[in-house]
Design a protein around this nucleic acid. Structure first.
Lengths: 323, 323
DNA sequence: TTGAAAGCGCTACCAT
DNA sequence: ATGGTAGCGCTTTCAA
């Protein structure tokens, strides 16, 4: 493996000049540049990334913190990786599997200069603890954060959820169930608020048992609907879900149980993924890709680059066969 | 930010000794170790990862090369990230979006010592070209490779596909259609072979128009079945798919078109993902997670670590409502 | 336009 | 058990 020093010796110029050629400095004569480039070519030279990182203090790597890589965060991850790459940054995946200690590794890695910044998809550690890592580099979150130090690109879930609520209410459903996601998250909090406000405003029937948190997966959706249908005082006639996977589980289980959708049960998903399209599930479109781009732009701004502006984002309801 | 040199000065010991403490060398007295650890604590010291990488020549990072992050490669990615992390390696994502130049970036990054090894999920460059990067570090592939230098953890798709074929044949279907994936891949090649052998052995009706390549997505599945149903000489009565997404597309479109599944059309997916479970699609279980682990073990072996053995893997057919 | 040299922060060999 | 020191390969200031 050849290095910069060898190129310098062989070309008869100094390391400084070779470095200038590498970095396209204008202060190198055309002749010199050509000689050096030719030798680099002959030796099949490429600069060592680690050496560059150590010297410059930046790795051009951004860490993505997440509980796991799943269908829900896939569009976020994909869009982030793609956008970051266009700006010369690679993305490193840190999955915690729900283990706080493992998650913390990502933050320690920023402290150790292995990544220049972090973007949180979902996190499980105490937010105050995570906030203490802000001094080591930019941290931006997709998940909404209580902590002001960690900016979030999440949208106000209140608005999106209200869109779904008003849609089913407008179609005459009044016994509305909720399959909410992560109980402690701000996302869920906003959605609960929306439901409470709508219940009051539109005089909905309310039954505590109709609302559940901690429902994210297809299987959980399947189980949930089975339970809901057995509730004393009658089952709900509409359900809003934490995501499209839950909605898919509910839909397929409802079919197995011969419940007519949407006549006897209206189902609304969230995120408007391919799954919702395929199964014909009404869903709320969440511009996730754009949120990922906003996340990167926020990071680039904090890294001292060009402060790219944030895009304005909004939810949209896509009606399909389940409402 | 404190560094090793400061710790050395403050503690009164040399950098070498401090480094020994860092690396848990046994050749440090207990007393010395405690003094140094205490000072590290006080200064909130952590070693700089870049400096370590430059010095040791290894980054503890492995690159994952893929066209895009999608449902098909998700279990592979997830399992790989998880297993790698348990061995102290982080995973970096390189998505090409089908652009060879962008894909090559991953290989250049190994050359520049930004990653210690590469694992290919799918790749689009000429394999001979990629093979020339083997001298810069271990490369292992999920996708089957023609090149002997790049080992693959892919399973013989012939066997898996044959499992699906014999299943539908056993249930009396003889007009079998094929929705194959990437035309140029060895995976597809193995599956085509299986079909041809089965057609001969079981005297299947054969119609060129029933077999298509380049079908990966839900939407393509939807479109395909619409076309197949219009074919002169009659449509097929069974179809084997490149993956579960295609099967899902075919199933939902078939329902919309009032085609009875499985009476008029049997559908078999591939990979046995959650989607197949949810929609009740018969599918062929492909132990993808185990393949990812094999990939990492192969890499660790080549990196000079412990040569962990390869697990023996096999396909299984999971029957559900579509056959 | 070019060069010399001092970093960047750590590892590892050779002494003692 | 501990220290001295030469790397690892590049960037960047300061001079010339």
């Amino acid at each position: 493996m050849s290095n910069l020093d060898q190129i310098a010796k062989l070309s008869g110029f100094s390391k400084a000049t070779v470095s200038r050629v590498l970095n396209r400095s204008p202060h190198v004569s055309q002749a010199t540049r050509e000689i050096i480039l030719k030798i680099m070519e002959e030796l099949d030279y490429v600069p060592n990334g680690n050496a560059i990182s150590l010297s410059t203090g930046e790795t051009m790597q951004i860490g993505m913190v997440t509980e796991g890589i799943n269908e829900v965060m896939l569009p976020f991850l994909n869009s982030f990786v793609e956008t970051a790459s266009r700006h010369g940054y690679q993305t490193i995946i840190y999955t915690s599997g729900g283990d706080p200690a493992k998650e913390l590794q990502a933050f320690e890695d920023m402290r150790r200069k292995r990544v220049d910044a972090l973007v949180i998809s979902t996190c499980v550690n105490d937010q105050a603890l995570l906030g203490s890592y802000c001094k080591y580099g930019p941290i931006v979150s997709w998940q909404r954060m209580e902590l002001p130090e960690i900016q979030s690109v999440a949208m106000n879930q209140y608005d999106g959820y209200m869109l779904g609520l008003e849609h089913v209410i407008g179609r005459g459903y009044t016994r509305i169930a909720n399959a909410w996601g992560r109980p402690a998250s701000m996302n869920t909090f906003g959605r609960i608020q929306a439901y409470q406000d709508a219940a009051r405003k539109y005089h909905l029937e309310v039954n505590q048992e109709w609302s559940q948190t901690g429902i994210f997966s297809i299987r959980q959706g399947e189980e949930l609907i089975r339970r809901l249908l057995l509730i004393a005082g009658g089952p709900p006639n509409a359900i809003l879900c934490a995501n499209d996977m839950v909605a898919a589980g509910i839909l397929s289980e409802a079919r197995r149980l011969k419940v007519k959708v949407p006549e006897e049960l209206a189902i609304v998903g969230f995120d408007n993924t391919e799954l919702a399209h395929t199964l014909g599930i009404t869903s709320i479109n969440n511009p996730i890709g754009a949120q990922a781009q906003n996340a990167l732009h926020l990071i680039l701004g904090k890294l001292g680059g060009t402060e790219a502006g944030q895009q304005e984002l909004e939810f949209q309801l896509v009606q399909r066969a389940t409402t």
